[in-house]
């Protein structure tokens, strides 16, 4: 059994709330939970159920200031605020502050590890705490821990499908012979696509994940600007029909190597491993000595992603 850790959770969206909800099941305690405006902090453990009720009831999450989170006695900062690009703030500053005060940081926020990986690793080197970020790539699927177990230098490339929304749209277009706009509207009705689906369909979200993978393989050096990214907005139903006539289909595929990151629509065998359907994600990890490994599963969702956060927490040494 992993050491029990005291968690301070920043971000009370699907992931942050699910981490708070599931923490006790995994043997950990929540000492703080904050959204962007308020927080609830208690060094003896907050009342998670009450805080979540308040949040879901559109009340303030608590009476404390979000800054108070850093003042309390915690072991692991869980950074689950929304992903931002560029300076990756406020996520990056949160992680920095925790590391500088010798705390562990577990990120579900892709921004800091995609955009400022090198700086984070430098902060980690000077800290008693460590950073982990399994949840940033492939939700529930153990991708980074698999690479870690294979040792990163024995992994030559990672590729696959890491955006469920784009995959859902392409799957539906192929199955129903419908056009992009039509299926996107359907996906929004089903809650599979957000009201603003830009980052999902233009490849940005998948690219961030493959940038993180390239950073892990090459020990840093990549940000979103280094990735070649194309989306699926220009793919008509007729392209999928033509692909199907040839036993193929089109998927938004990402590739990360030590040399670069590329995301775009690609032809793949219709019954091949990478042609997962619906919102499912898959990664193929190419190793030097062990051939290819495939992991597939749910790449998003509150509880699913929270399990990745809590696995990371479980891997951290006691401080």
């Amino acid at each position: 059994m992993a050491a029990s850790q005291r968690l301070a959770i920043l971000g009370a969206g699907d992931v942050g709330r699910s981490v708070a909800d599931l923490a006790s099941e995994y043997g950990h305690e929540v000492v703080a939970l904050a959204d962007s405006t308020t927080a609830t902090v208690d060094p003896d453990g907050i009342d998670v159920a009450a805080a979540l009720d308040r949040k879901l009831g559109d009340d303030e999450i608590g009476a404390d200031d979000p800054a108070a989170v850093f003042e309390t006695d915690y072991d692991v900062l869980v950074e689950a605020t929304p992903t931002t690009l560029g300076d990756a703030d406020p996520g990056f500053t949160h992680a920095k502050r925790a590391l500088e005060t010798d705390h562990h940081v577990v990120l579900a926020n892709k921004g800091p590890v995609a955009e400022r990986y090198g700086e984070l690793r430098e902060l980690e080197a000077d800290s008693a705490g460590s950073i982990r970020f399994e949840a940033t790539v492939g939700g529930a699927i153990p991708v980074l821990s698999t690479i870690e177990d294979s040792t990163p230098h024995a992994v030559t490339a990672v590729r696959g499908v890491l955006n469920g929304t784009a995959n859902f749209i392409l799957t539906r277009m192929a199955a129903e012979g419908l056009d992009y706009e039509h299926v996107l509207a359907e996906a929004q009705d089903l809650g599979v696509a957000e009201a603003d689906p830009t980052f999902d369909v233009d490849g940005t979200d998948a690219a961030l994940k493959f940038v993180i993978l390239a950073n892990v393989l090459a020990d840093g050096g990549f940000s979103l600007d280094d990735a070649t990214v194309e989306g699926i907005q220009n793919i008509p139903g007729s392209a999928l029909d033509l692909a199907a006539e040839d036993g193929r289909t089109i998927r938004l595929i990402g590739e990360a190597t030590r040399d670069g990151v590329r995301v775009g629509p690609r032809l793949v065998p219709e019954n091949g491993a990478l042609a997962v359907t619906g919102t499912r994600n898959i990664v193929q990890i190419k190793t030097r000595n062990a051939g290819s490994l495939h992991s597939s599963g749910r790449g998003a969702g509150g509880p699913e992603t929270a399990t990745a956060v809590l696995s990371d927490v479980g891997r951290l040494p006691p401080l």
Binding site: N234, I253, G264, R266, V268, G272, L274
Partner: peptide
């Protein structure tokens, strides 16, 4: 033109 390339190299 938008080009959809094949994914090459290893079993896809």
């Amino acid at each position: 033109l938008t080009i959809v390339e094949p994914l090459l190299g290893g079993e896809a």
